[in-house]
Write a protein that binds this DNA or RNA. Structure first.
Length: 798
DNA sequence: GATTTTACGTA
DNA sequence: CGTACGTAAAATCT
């Protein structure tokens, strides 16, 4: 039965779906089934009722098989069959009858029917004009069916519908009042720069640079002080300067004055732009004493508003602004592209500033902006590679790899590509006939997948005695290590990383390859201990001091669960697992054997429950029966009821508003399906983000107040590293400053949390000796006659 | 050629 | 054992 137009005939909003579902066809109504319910939910989140909308489909009948391709002659679904043309005529009639102020298209085929393009990826959320009924305004978004399979599309879809609501009040495309100067002359730029600097009504402006690889030279700069004005000035055309040398000198002088004029400059990921401008041109585009007043960033704003969502400029524009997509078709018009980037950056920030106020999270934004200078400094400074150590490590691993590889080929009778899971599955589970190992599944209904990962090979080694297993692991390990060790160094012999403030959902920093200093293996937060020994301070003859928050996340959980006993154990730094075992087996904790089974069980159970693992995991870990594992879990929970209670409270909160707020006011909304996996992320979020923010507050503090005298080297989530001269006086002073900046009283759950700090010191990043301050003297822990003792620190002791 | 999967390192 | 990240090579898709 063909689907008829539904809803009021004078609706302001018209919704065009792609094609009817099974239930729609049975009932003869559009969006009658589950996708309809989802559509209704999404609309209501945007403040729209589906009953105020006229709803129809692009295809009026459900095709056999339910795929729109049935109505087209080509694979790209752009050449319609006669019946599809008929549908289009009907649709045109419907639109002309309703005369909506705005149309929402759902899915590819609806977009094609109304706007003659299937490019939903580029046009989603942008304002378009219909080609079917010219003059009619269109906003394309995903179909409910697509959102069902890709849950993260829910957020942009709701944002598109918010935009829809704002556009229902008037017909036709909004006036385009934009002024874009694509290729400003030096004179035009100078006049504009002067205006930006001196006009008191202009308090902030956006800036965006374009760079050319490999040296990140600036090819263009765009500015905007108004979402309807953008100006771009070209500097390089390919590798050729656009201006004569004297003019270019003048240009850099004006630019320097403009970027240091003290007004707020809005960037999209300014860590990149600011660092490039500083490295290449020596212009510091912010005031270090007034970071908040001179830097604004749309990436940071988007990160604190919607940490789980995509944050590219094009995407932000699609959900914040009424502009047409520009990223895809202005690639060849560099000026147009650059100017639009700048003006949309300006416009997005205006919207996000309001959104942050609405969500009451401006303080989180301020906290992240304050991290800019230290993150940029760390990226630029890098860490020195000791060539002697590096050569030794390369030799060690190359020998190990060659030996293992040769033995492996000999055993198998042919060379083995140990990095190929597919070939290893063939070798182990087919050729050698070993019992196949499978990955842990998220759902019992998921298909079983074979694996040859480390756990699987180790497990196989306990069943069969085949040297191939160990050799494969050795080959893979050495090969991977060599990749990191051999990574190219800068001319100064350093490796660098880009610390990313806005890339995680928890507020922790991530670490990835630096485009500006492309030396090293990229991520410096996952360097194995073995390799750390080749890294040292960029300044010769220095020592590296590490300070890390002790068992930080576990302490955080103790406060969050309000477990007084646990807090006391951490405060006195007693053996936690002995306590656990004591509670479980009804003994004083001091009577638990430090190497015995009871402590081992206590430790395993604590970890299992902290990470909400089930009895099957405990069974494997302890090597006991499932029944026994269940019994132990119940025993543990009965003597430690607080953790489970806390987790239940989190689940309750997720069901009420899906939102959690950490100890520093950081907000995260959990938009996924409410299942065990989501609950687990939620349990992990609070301690992870608490400690991440704690660390970064300390790091910002130490750089803002002691950045001139202390040299920060690395950030590792709950640890920071500073290098200093090796004499005891310098070391003491550094440690005292670190101690002052890392001591923070965090109000949490009606109490005050203080996480203690551990120190260590070494000539390089890897070889570190435990250290402490005792009565104004730095002491280090050394082994004397097999016993650990604290002795006063001397340079030659490490 | 671009995108996804697999394996593996850190907190 | 959990989640949070990034990278390399292989596998797969278009």
């Amino acid at each position: 039965m063909p689907i008829q137009l539904q809803g009021p005939k004078d609706a302001k909003i018209m919704i065009v779906g792609s094609l009817p579902g099974k239930i729609d066809e049975q009932v003869g109504k559009a969006y009658a089934g589950q996708p309809g319910q989802l559509l209704e939910q999404l609309l209501s989140q945007a403040g729209i009722s589906r009953y105020e909308c006229a709803i129809t489909f692009a295809c009026k009948d459900r095709p056999p098989g339910g795929s729109a391709s049935f109505f087209f002659t080509n694979k790209q679904l752009t050449h319609p069959k006669p019946i599809m043309l008929e549908y289009l005529t009907q649709l045109k009639k419907e639109i002309e009858e309703v005369k909506p102020n705005v149309i929402l298209t759902l899915g590819h085929t609806a977009l094609w029917a109304v706007c003659n393009t299937r490019d939903l990826k580029n046009f989603r959320g942008s304002l378009m004009e219909s080609t079917l009924v010219p003059g009619t305004k269109v906003i394309p978004t995903f179909s409910p069916n697509a959102i069902n399979t890709k849950w993260e599309w829910c957020f942009p879809a709701v944002m598109d519908m918010r935009k829809l609501r704002n556009h229902q009040s008037y017909a036709g495309m909004p006036d385009d009042n934009r002024i874009i100067i694509e290729n400003a002359s030096l004179q035009e730029f100078e006049a504009y720069a002067l205006e930006l600097m001196t006009n008191p009504n202009i308090t902030q402006f956006a800036c965006d640079i374009e760079t050319t690889p490999p040296n990140s030279h600036i090819s263009r700069i765009g500015f905007s002080h108004n979402k309807n004005f953008g100006l771009s000035i070209p500097i390089l055309n390919g590798y050729q300067p656009v201006m004569p040398a004297t003019q270019e000198t003048h240009f850099w002088q004006i630019l320097s004055r403009l970027l240091t004029c003290g007004k707020k400059i809005i960037w999209q990921n300014g860590t990149y732009d600011i660092l490039v401008i500083w490295k290449n041109n020596g212009i510091l585009a912010f005031n270090p004493k007034k970071v908040k007043e001179t830097i604004a960033d749309t990436l940071v704003a988007a990160h604190v508003c919607w940490p789980e969502s995509e944050k590219s400029l094009g995407f932000l524009a699609s959900i914040c602004l009424d502009v047409q997509a520009w990223k895809h078709d202005s690639k060849d018009y560099h000026g147009l592209y650059n100017a639009q980037d700048a003006m949309n950056t300006y416009g997005i920030f205006e919207v996000l500033e309001k959104e942050m106020e609405t969500l009451a999270i401006t303080h989180t934004y301020d906290m992240e902006i304050a991290q800019y200078p230290v993150a940029m400094m760390l990226q630029m400074r890098g860490i020195k590679v000791n060539e002697e150590t590096r050569t030794r490590l390369i030799q060690e691993q190359e020998e190990r790899l060659a030996a293992a590889e040769e033995a492996l080929s000999k055993l198998c009778g042919k060379p083995i590509n140990f990095n190929s899971p597919k070939q290893l599955i063939q070798l182990l589970y087919v050729d050698l006939g070993l019992p196949a190992q499978y990955k842990r599944r998220k759902n019992a209904s998921d298909p079983r997948k074979m694996t040859t990962d480390e756990d699987a090979l180790n497990h196989l080694s306990t069943i069969v005695d085949n040297p191939v297993l160990k050799l494969i692991l050795e080959c893979r390990k050495s090969y991977k290590l060599l990749g990191v060790i051999k990574a190219e160094t800068s001319p100064e012999g350093t490796h660098h990383t880009s610390y990313n403030i806005c890339k995680t959902e928890t507020g922790r920093w991530s670490s990835s390859e630096s485009i500006i200093f492309p030396y090293g293996s990229g991520n410096l937060q996952n360097i194995t201990y073995y390799i750390r020994q080749m890294y040292e301070s960029p300044i010769p003859n220095r020592v590296i001091i590490q300070a890390d928050y002790i068992q930080a996340e576990a302490v955080d959980v103790a406060f969050r669960t309000n477990d007084q006993k646990l807090k006391g154990i951490f405060d006195r730094q007693e053996d936690l697992h002995a306590h656990t075992a004591g509670d479980m087996f009804g003994k004083p904790w001091t009577e638990i054997d430090p190497d015995g089974d009871e402590r081992r069980i206590g430790k395993t159970l604590r970890h299992a429950t902290n990470y909400s693992a089930g009895p099957a995991v405990v069974q494997v870990k302890l090597g006991c029966t499932l029944a026994h594992a269940k019994k132990l879990l119940n025993l543990y929970i009965s003597v430690n009821p607080k953790l489970v209670h806390w987790q239940n409270e989190i689940v309750k909160k997720l069901h009420t508003d899906r939102t959690l707020i950490n100890a520093f006011g950081r907000r995260r909304k959990f938009t996924g399906r409410l299942n065990d996996q989501l609950y687990r992320s939620a349990y992990a979020f609070l301690p992870q983000s608490d400690i991440g923010d704690l660390m970064n507050l300390s790091l910002t503090d130490i750089y803002e107040n002691y950045g001139e005298e202390l040299d920060l080297l690395l950030q590792l989530h709950d640890a920071m590293y500073i290098d200093t001269d090796p004499d005891p006086a310098s070391v003491l002073k550094t440690m005292q400053t670190m101690s002052n900046c890392m001591y923070r009283e965090v109000p949490l759950n009606g109490d005050t949390m203080v996480v203690k700090v551990d120190y260590s010191i070494g000539r390089n990043w890897g070889k570190q000796t435990k250290a402490r301050i005792n009565q104004g003297i730095v002491e280090i822990q050394i082994k004397k006659d097999g016993k650990k003792t604290w002795v006063p620190y001397k340079e030659d002791l490490i």
